[in-house]
Design a protein around this nucleic acid. Structure first.
Length: 508
RNA sequence: GCCGCGUUGGUCAAUCGGCUAAGACGCCUCCCUUUCACGGAGGAAUGACGGGUUCGACUCCCGUACGUGGUACCA
């Protein structure tokens, strides 16, 4: 078999969706697994949907994910250009060839003609009439018009499109790598436009011409493309390239966690989780949509989540590095059914990856999130703190939530824990303990020992003052062991925090 | 409406005719920890429905239901 070549062909119209990244991933894994090539082609044939910056954004996302193509508009390749708008001139000859061989025809119907046709033929039984083998005989095209009139229209530069002439009474079938045998009755397929009035191809023409020209061997795309597969198949036949047609795999959809339907960015906003790989700001509306990266996900975790959303290796393993995925991925084990996205599970994956990182690695990752709160950071100090708190962190911003009190005096959110049961005995205890600070080594164990000594001296139990101490140092009921915190923040700061609260509590 | 595709716990899912139906997330209980988390031990919770085929069906076939996608000069 010839060298494996796959492609991801997004249209640059906005943020890169979870499902899009998964399609990239499966392409990438398949290509690497078979030592093949992964091509990124930009499908920008709809000029009305052009969005500034969207193409660049896609590349940035792939870079963040570590799924970089072997050929693309950015790095070029032997089949350049990789942007369909730049290949515009190429498609006409193939459309023309189809017309000449009788597999396609010119259609001169205006937008109004089409609307008119649809409204005239619309019935309850057929709510969306199609431009098909039945109706094409009633429209203005090179099949119904006399040849000289067609020539005249063409000569006058009358706007036209080229439509595929779908045959009647034919079964189009193929074997999908995921779904097995699939078949369609051509009587139910419409005469799709191949070449638009502006001279641009539609997706249907472009995808087969480019897959052929770029020597694509395996084509993976979302399940939403399955209904148009017969058109593509017929095109491969009519163009005489059938033997070179790639093997198809239609990937299952990623669904909303609640309710039903394809996952959309709106669902993310509604339910509070990201849907795009990275932040996307719409240049027209200025609307910002949050991405997994900015939410604090690690790219390795993000990839792992996506890989398992529709695929598994049949064992109990859930954590896979990219290399393992490349080694173990097989398209046959991809599910047929769509999967609902579960953000809780996604967070669990990220937590797993965070725990597997060394504290050194985490320093660089966490730093920006600490810096956001304008505190000065010392790397070795940060590293120690990370060691203390990382097991309670799931997303990168959690490091601030879980460790802010190491950097600045916390706001006391649960003061009542102290004040509700405050008394002279406790006050004396804390004062006594603070006074002993000068005579002890400032280490975790020494701190704990002196704390215990003070306890017996004041006839108190640990339970009476340990939680109040935590509130004094942390502000709330969370965090690592109090003596570890005290050790880290130092004698002066510890003293300051305690004395401060003694004052406040005594005023009650 | 029509066509395609799908359907194992709340979610992700294993199973390729032998099932007392794995595992993970989430949830609940307990232990650990005088905080939170981590960790540990338990628990509740699944084959859409109806027909076949078969000694035997979650697994194969056929219906039905439900879901989902498509039905554009968008991809």
């Amino acid at each position: 078999m010839s060298k494996v070549r796959v492609r991801f062909a997004p249209s640059p119209t906005g943020g890169l969706h979870l499902g899009g990244v998964r399609t990239v991933l499966y392409n990438y894994l398949f290509a690497r697994h078979h030592s093949g090539e992964f091509v990124l082609r930009i499908e920008d044939t709809d000029q009305s949907r052009y969005v500034e910056g969207a193409e660049e954004y896609i590349f940035d996302c792939l870079k963040w994910c570590g799924l970089e193509p072997d050929e693309s508009v950015q790095i070029g390749g032997p089949y350049a250009p990789y942007r369909q708008s730049e290949r515009k001139g190429l498609y006409f000859q193939y459309a023309k060839q189809l017309v000449d061989t009788g597999y396609a025809y010119y259609a001169f119907d205006t937008q109004a003609d089409l609307e008119d046709m649809r409204s005239r033929h619309k019935t309850d039984a057929n709510p969306t009439p199609q431009y098909d083998h039945k109706l094409r005989t009633q429209m203005r095209n090179s099949l119904t018009l006399p040849p000289n009139e067609v020539e005249q229209l063409l000569a006058n530069n009358t706007p036209y499109v080229i439509r595929i002439k779908i045959p009647e009474n034919t079964i189009v079938e193929f074997d999908d790598m995921i779904r097995g045998h699939v078949q369609f009755d051509t009587n139910l397929v419409d005469d799709k436009v191949l070449l638009k009035a502006d001279g641009m191809p539609t997706y249907h023409l472009a995808v087969v011409v480019d897959d052929y020209l770029m020597k694509i061997t395996h084509a993976f795309r979302g399940e939403e493309w399955l209904p148009s597969a017969p058109v593509h198949l017929l095109l491969w036949k009519y163009l005489g390239w059938y033997n070179d047609m790639p093997k198809w795999a239609h990937l299952p959809l990623i669904l909303k966690p609640d309710g039903h339907g394809k996952l959309s960015k709106r669902d993310g906003e509604r339910l509070g989780f990201p849907v795009f790989a990275m932040n996307w700001k719409d240049p027209k509306s200025g609307e910002l949509t949050q991405g997994f990266r900015e939410r604090g996900f690690l790219p390795e975790a993000f990839i792992n989540i996506l890989a398992l959303l529709g695929w598994n290796d049949g064992t109990e393993q859930e954590i896979f590095s990219l290399d393992e995925l490349i080694q173990k991925f097989s398209i046959e084990r991809v599910h047929k059914g769509g999967a609902k996205f579960d953000f809780e599970k996604a967070k669990w994956f990220n937590h797993q990856y965070l725990q597997r990182k060394t504290n050194e690695e985490l320093v660089g990752l966490v730093k920006p999130y600490i810096a956001e709160h304008s505190v000065s950071i010392d790397d070795s100090y940060l590293k120690k703190i990370i060691g203390l708190i990382k097991e309670r962190c799931t997303l990168l911003p959690d490091f601030w939530e879980q460790g802010h009190f190491f950097f600045k005096t916390p706001e006391i959110k649960e003061l009542s824990v102290i004040t509700d049961k405050w008394n002279e005995q406790k006050k004396a205890f804390f004062e006594g303990w603070v006074n002993s600070f000068n005579s002890i080594d400032w280490t975790h164990d020494a701190l704990e020992n002196s704390f215990n000594e003070q306890l017996t001296a004041h006839s108190l139990k640990k339970g009476d003052v340990l939680l109040p101490l935590r509130i004094m140092l942390v502000g709330g009921k969370y965090g690592p062991g109090v003596f570890a915190i005290a050790e880290m923040i130092g004698k002066e700061e510890t003293k300051k925090r305690i004395i401060n609260i003694i004052k406040r509590a005594s005023e009650y």
